[in-house]
Design a protein around this nucleic acid. Structure first.
Lengths: 231, 231
DNA sequence: GTCTATATATTGATAGAC
DNA sequence: GTCTATCAATATATAGAC
């Protein structure tokens, strides 16, 4: 992939407030401030997850949040700030299921419930999934460091766990990294490509029960593939 | 998903050329015209696939194509026209592998080579994959009809083939639609989430051979899952 | 805290010289 | 066919009244 060129749409040179990058102190907030911010973040999540950072506009977000643009900018002085907070919050919840995969547990049930949890997240937090996907498609300009740092360490760690389980003969042998990728891919697909899934299944094809069907299918796919061969 | 609100950035009311929607005749073209258009389409593919329709700008595309903005607009009078042509071309090549899955062939090898072909496309045409993914994330505003029409028919058709193979005991029983989804998801993941895959694998983890490793893994995953149980 | 006005940069698209 | 100049609409963000 070529280096990303950011054209920085309509940046009006930031006239006053000469505080540069240093001002990142999380000031004390009233209850009403937090509520307003949550409304904005929720609205912004909907817009960013569909159009990406550049494609989204403050107007759209303000509309969705039911407030005027200057009012929104009173709470978040910069568009980037909203996006940054969303990404940070999303990443934390997004990686939680993998963290929960427990080395001391039973391998097959552990993997099974990891898949189930990931699929539930795709069902319950599709906007977060799409926000993440959008960031990936752009080459992760804002979170690359986290991917190559924190995420990589976490995956390395869990890959080791999987390898140990394979060594002990508790699951069959396969590349642990690509196993994790395939779990991510198959589960997130139901959030990110939701339109396609629904269009293909349609109402008469049981599009409503698609998450239950997916859960059953993925369990079959992965478990049959991972169960130790009998003799 | 809520209905998509298109804010139509910077549309200057199209001053002259009162031909409306009717002008879609593919006029005869010289060789040099086609070449220029191909350069533009190639450049546009790079930009649209990263930023999506709204996030991409004609300036970026013109830059990437090595020509001025008005010059580009001489060949494609409207931004939408470029995107439409890209989407159309992409969809055709994108669905080809599934079409090739042959009912009269041997089930296991047929599925195996379908997966292989899809993975090769993710490797060789990642920009097309991301263009498609971007469109999906946005709710497919420009291609929904194709998804619910042509694509759905194709998938229905191939699902029937898979079901017949299952009835004949040649592959084990599973939901054919979700089987197809999971093949799409796992293979396209290597194009759409390429940054993440590379960041996690890194150079020392064999990130270079990731497509070969993925091919081996996916073959194991799907084949072991699909092979008829012995006794 | 919220609003109306407005400053400034960028966008998609044209006009018209060459 | 290509370029410079430019238009009209939108974009991010601020100022300042209330």
């Amino acid at each position: 992939m070529p280096p990303i060129k950011m054209k920085n749409a309509a940046k009006p040179a930031r006239r006053s407030t000469e505080d540069g990058e240093a001002a990142s102190k999380p000031r004390p907030q009233t209850r009403i401030q937090r509520e307003k911010q949550d409304i904005i973040l929720d609205a912004a999540l909907g817009v960013f997850s569909v159009h990406g950072f550049r494609g989204a506009t403050i107007d759209q977000i303000a509309d969705a949040a039911g407030m005027s643009k200057p009012n929104l900018l009173y709470y978040f002085p910069r568009k980037e700030e909203i996006h940054k907070q969303l990404i940070t919050k999303m990443l934390a919840t997004w990686l939680a299921p993998l963290r929960e995969m427990d080395e001391t547990g039973d391998p097959i049930p552990e993997i099974r419930s990891y898949i189930r949890r990931k699929l539930e997240m795709a069902r319950d937090f599709p906007r977060e999934s799409r926000l993440f996907a959008n960031e990936m498609l752009q080459g992760a300009p804002r979170i690359y460091d986290i991917l190559a740092g924190e995420l990589r360490e976490l995956v390395d760690d869990k890959a080791d766990v999987l390898l140990r389980w394979m060594d002990e003969g508790k699951i069959s042998r396969a590349d642990p990294y690509h196993l994790i990728f395939s779990i991510w891919a198959t589960t997130q697909h139901y959030a990110d490509f939701d339109v396609q899934v629904r269009a293909v299944l349609g109402k008469d094809r049981g599009g409503d029960g698609r998450f239950e069907d997916a859960a059953r299918f993925l369990e079959t796919l992965f478990m049959t593939g991972l169960s130790p061969k009998k003799a």
